[in-house]
Each structure stands twice: as structure tokens, then as C-alpha cells.
Simulated scan of single mutants.
Amino acid sequence: MAKEVLVRQHQLDAIADEITQNRPEHERFRVPGYAGIVVDADNGRLNVYWKGPLPERVHNLAAQAPHGLKVDVRPARYSAAEVKTAQRKLLTNSSRRGDGLLPGGRPWTSLATSPTGDGLIIGYEPEKGLSRAQQDGESSEVAAATQKATGVAVTAMPKRRSQISARQDDYSPWWGGAGLRTPANSFCSSGFSVYFPSGAPGMLTAAHCGMDGQFFDRQGELIGEAILKRRDLDVTVIGVENGAVGGYYYDGPWSTDIGKHVIGWNTNYVGDYVCTSGAMSGVHCNNKVNSIEDDIVQDDGTHVGPVVFAQRTDLQDVSHSKGDSGGPVVTSPDGTYGFDMEARGIISVGRGEPTVCIPGETQRPDVMCFSTVGYIPMGTIMNTFGLTLATD
């Protein structure tokens, strides 16, 4: 990704933050009239979707955009608050074990709000053995029934449940992006170093990697025990018992010993470019955010949300692999992909047809890779658990 594109992204995200009053992804619906924002860093444009009269502060922000950037305000059919209300109607009768049903009885696999204020985008489990024409008919029926129940326009599409995507001898001070041996002796990745409200050191990873018991590095050295966890957010915070944490993460291939500095965290917008950096497959950049607040059902039946999704733009690369779960998602605030990077979330799931990764590019052979990564946004993590990101 060209430096100038990421510089524009950083500038456009800053304007978007002012428009959304610096609210994290899952709180932006509280801004009256706000419907969504799509960042077009390639063309230096911020597309803002709004229902109703535009507040003077937003009008002024649009008018005062820096030279070379443009804020384009477009009318929206629904506000984010209206779509959020509809989304909650579908969540109300859903447990966190995957038994959420859409009107008509089809199990849903994802519930997303349109970033342009056009309504809900729903994924559902299709009937098996249907032809393409029959699938189209089924999608129309699901959309119509759900629209009637929720009161907003619905786009429905068949979508399988998102699949959990689970360097190799880390040590204190512990960094993110390292290989973990979980309490169940499986392979996962560490996320970002944090501090608990008490000031004690901690490390993020995915809750599906383990919510109880001790975590070790891949060579068996104790890191600590799971302290805070929310399966519905897919986040576990490990209490570091053995040493300290550092404000760095591993960046490069799965075998790297090189790290980069974490300077802080920020929220996500549709159109942003991000990198993943898990211990199984290493770093993958040029992933473009296409959805910021999905509720999904993982392949073990657990409901998780909010989830941000980003899809690869380089067809010769992947977004991440199994085993990268819990690992860092970052972006370059100055566009150089240099030493200082910004945290955006931790890896949770993969989406898209899984394929075998390129031989030699993963820590293990025959690991499954994905074209789209789903990650838990930093704002949700930090605000839910009251954590402070380690940047030292």
C-alpha cells in the first residue's frame, strides 16, 4: 500500500472521529442522525451517510476538510440507531450458543448494519442441495420475512458460520503476535500487551483459545492464567505472572524475531487498510475493512460481536490462517509501515472459502488460510475491561 494512501487514511479517520465524537464502533449509533461512514483513502474522500438535517458541526467539518481531501455527505434511508434497534430485535431471542433464528426459521450466521444506512445485511444457513435459482428465491424469502419483523430493509445471503482461526519462543517482557500454548494445548497467538486497572501486566488473546487455566509460550514457558474473559466478545485477558509486558508485537513471517512498536489504539471505519500478524502465518497487509459491527455465529455455535471484517486486496496473499487467533491487527498511522504502528483489534475468525496456505509460509504444513479476517475492535476490548494499552 502506497504511503500517500495511508497518510490520507489517517487524515480521513481523524475527520471521521470528530464526526462520530470519538465513539468506538459499537457506540456510533448514539450520534443522532448518523448512519455510517466509508473511507475512500485511494481517492481522498470521506463518504458520510446521514438521516435528517445535518448538524452545523458536521457541515463545518465537511467544509473545512484539508486541501486534497473531500467530505461528501449523502442522505441515508435509516439512521444507525434505527438499524441497531432492528438488529437487537433479532438478537433478543438468541442465546450465545448459536440457536438464533430468523423469521421463517432459518438460523442466522451474521447480522451486520449497512455502512451506508440502507438497512441490515444478514447471513443465514441455507438449505443444502439448492440450485442457484433456488438459493436466490430462499434469500428473497428470508429478506422479506426479516424486513417485516424488523421494520427495516434487509439484504439476505447464504453464509456459513465464521470459522475460528486458532513467533515461537517468546520471553519477558512478553510481546504480541507470539505463539501461545493454550490451556487445551492448542496453538493460538498473543494479541497486545495491556495493564489491568490495578496496574498489573496482562496480555490479550481470543476467548476461544481458552478462558480458564494457564497459557504458555510455544516452548512451554509459563506466561500466566486467564483472568478476565468474555466469550461473547471472544476476548481473554491473561494475567502475566512470569515477568513483564512490552509495548511491541512481532512483525514479519511466522519465524521472525523482529518487532514493531505499538504507539496506541484507534477505532475502525469501512475502507480502512489493516495488517494482521499472527504466530502461525505471520504478517499480512492490504486487508481492507468492509464491515465494522457484525454479530456472528462462530463454527462452534457461539454468538460473538461486534466483529470488524477486512478482506484481502492482494489476491496473491491471504488475510490470516488458523492459529493466528488472538493475534494483533494494526495499521500504519503515517503510511510508512515503519516502526510505530497503531492497534486496531485482535484476530477472531476467518471468512470466505478456506484454502491450504502456501507451503513454507506457515509454522505448520496444511494449515487453512482465509481471504477475510474478522477481528474484535480495540475500543470494545479496552472499554469493556477497563484496560490500558502498553506502549512502553
Rank of each mutant, 00 (worst) to 15 (best):
V73W: 00
G386C: 02
A178G: 15
P306T: 06
P66D: 11
Q219L: 06
R106I: 02
I258V: 14
C275F: 07
V235N: 10
G129M: 06
V307G: 10
G123H: 08
T113F: 00
K84W: 05
G259N: 14
K288A: 08
Y124T: 09
A207P: 05
D217W: 08
A80P: 01
M341F: 01
C275T: 14
D217P: 03
D392K: 12
G352S: 08
K159T: 09
Q134K: 15
F187P: 00
E125N: 09
T92L: 11
A166V: 06
D317W: 04
P126H: 05
Q135K: 13
E56Q: 15
I376F: 03
M378R: 12
P365W: 01
R30I: 01
G350W: 10
L120M: 12
L101C: 00
D212Y: 13
Q363M: 10
L101K: 15
Q135E: 15
S79R: 10
R344P: 00
N290M: 09
P197M: 03
S255C: 00
P333K: 07
K3Q: 15
S172K: 05
Y49V: 05
E141G: 02
R77S: 14
I258S: 14
N287Y: 07
Y337C: 15
V308F: 08
P197N: 07
V297G: 07
N268K: 00
F216S: 07
T362W: 02
S319H: 01
V349N: 14
T380F: 01
V142R: 11
I263K: 09
S189K: 07
A343H: 07
A143M: 04
T302I: 08
T85W: 09
Y273G: 07
D234S: 09
P103M: 06
V31C: 04
S114A: 15
C369K: 11
V235P: 05
R167V: 02
Y248W: 11
A62D: 09
L180T: 03
Q21K: 15
T20L: 07
R45V: 15
A184K: 12
S190M: 01
L91M: 14
P377H: 06
V307T: 13
P158L: 08
G129Q: 10
G52A: 11
A63V: 08
T391S: 02
G352N: 08
P197V: 06
R96F: 11
G278E: 02
D234H: 09
C285Y: 13
V58P: 04
I15A: 06
G239V: 01
K260G: 03
D299L: 03
R181V: 12
A76W: 12
R106T: 10
T302K: 08
N268I: 10
Q214P: 04
T267Y: 06
S281T: 12
E293F: 09
V304P: 04
T267N: 12
N185V: 11
Q311G: 05
A244P: 00
T355L: 05
G98N: 07
I346F: 02
V73P: 00
T20A: 11
I238T: 05
L6A: 11
D232I: 00
G350V: 06
A178N: 08
E225V: 13
R45E: 15
I37N: 01
G191S: 08
W50F: 09
G374E: 07
S140P: 00
F196L: 07
V297P: 05
G239L: 09
V308N: 02
W254F: 14
